[in-house]
């Protein structure tokens, strides 16, 4: 059967859309690119957190593609902050709601540029003062909205418009900042990483953070087909490989201590992950010894993560069955 025989009318579709058995915080019609990991991450977050929340959203793709004035894709109270003051705006919203005696939780949304670099100071202040805010960083590893500039989240050796590979260097020289440790160092109760490739795990973490009274932080690895140079159809595959290689550790910290991780049963070689993305294509240049060295370096970073965060799992599963999304008929596995 194919689309020619589809008999669903626009009215029934709209009816169906209104009656979906989940809370839709982010509606269709937004202008994200095809296969955008950030758009998916934002929907998953609001699905688990909503409806009783308010959002402060830093400048960046998420802000731009969801609010092409006079339209909005949000079904939640949402406000655009500046790039640099999301933490401060969220803190103010929280204080105002508290004064009014309202239980509504405040979420702060920002890209990695808005979290790791430009918005960092206000984030740090918000965490230090202990506001009851869940800060979500949509980590697509560069300033995407302005055309793929390097951020302190951009991984080592990745090509961006401000870290082009050439005779002087092989893409970005510095390492990806360990934002989770920095955030956790503010003595906050909960900080975690998650990936769009593992939606159940992601939503569980959002719900966990929602229950906590105080500042919490979740960093979500969100592939950007445009900036990373992969097929939009492969967004989940790429995100999954980042986890399976050990390059993006999926972990949870409570009061600075690691309390959980998504184990990797059979780590995949980092080249499986890198080869899918144009931002690493210079690492596959034949006959360039620097490329060989960089590949070995990235593999060493992954091996180090696996050792440092004790990610190596045991047992017959390729992936931890609790966090990994093993299908079963009827969709019952999705948390």
């Amino acid at each position: 059967m194919n689309e020619d025989t589809q008999t669903v009318t626009p009215e029934t579709l709209m009816q169906l859309r209104k009656n979906q058995p989940r809370f839709e915080g982010l509606e269709s019609g937004h202008r994200a690119c095809l296969g955008c990991g950030e758009a998916l991450a934002a929907r998953l977050v609001t699905e688990a957190a909503g409806p009783d929340v308010m959002i402060a959203n830093a400048t960046g793709c998420l802000e731009i593609f969801t609010t092409p004035w006079p339209e909005s894709a949000w079904r939640l109270p949402w406000m655009h902050s500046l790039f640099e003051n999301t933490g401060a705006i969220a803190a103010g919203m929280e204080a105002a709601l508290k004064a009014q005696g309202k239980p509504t939780k405040v979420l702060a949304f920002a890209g990695d540029g808005g979290t790791f670099d430009i918005g960092f100071q206000s984030l740090s202040g918000m965490l230090e003062r202990g506001h009851n805010v869940l800060f979500v960083c949509f980590d697509n590893e560069a300033y995407m909205n302005t055309g793929i500039q390097s951020s302190s989240s951009t991984p080592h050796a990745a090509m961006t418009t401000t870290s082009p590979p050439g005779s002087a260097r092989m893409g970005k020289q510095n390492l990806k900042k360990d934002i989770l440790s920095i955030v956790a160092a503010h003595h906050i109760p909960y900080a975690a990483t998650a990936s769009v490739a593992y939606p159940s795990d992601l939503r569980k973490k959002i719900r966990r953070a929602m229950e906590i009274e105080g500042p919490t932080f979740i960093q979500i690895h969100s592939p950007c087909p445009l900036g990373w140079g992969h097929d939009g159809a492969d967004s989940i595959k790429v995100a999954r490989l980042a986890v399976q290689t050990g390059l993006f550790p999926v972990i949870e910290l409570e009061s600075r201590e690691m309390i959980g991780s998504m184990p990797i049963r059979n780590p995949k070689p980092v080249t499986d992950y890198l080869v899918l993305q144009q931002r690493f294509r210079h690492l596959f240049q034949q006959g360039d010894v620097r490329a060989i060295e960089e590949l070995a370096h990235i593999q060493a970073l992954a091996d180090h993560n696996i050792k440092h965060f004790k990610l190596r799992g045991e047992g017959m599963d390729a992936q931890d069955s609790d966090g990994a999304d093993t299908v079963c008929r009827g969709g019952m596995r999705w948390a």
Partner: peptide, 10 residues
């Protein structure tokens, strides 16, 4: 700016 919820559906 101000916008009604979910209006990107248009």
């Amino acid at each position: 700016g101000f916008a009604y919820p979910g209006t990107t559906l248009v």
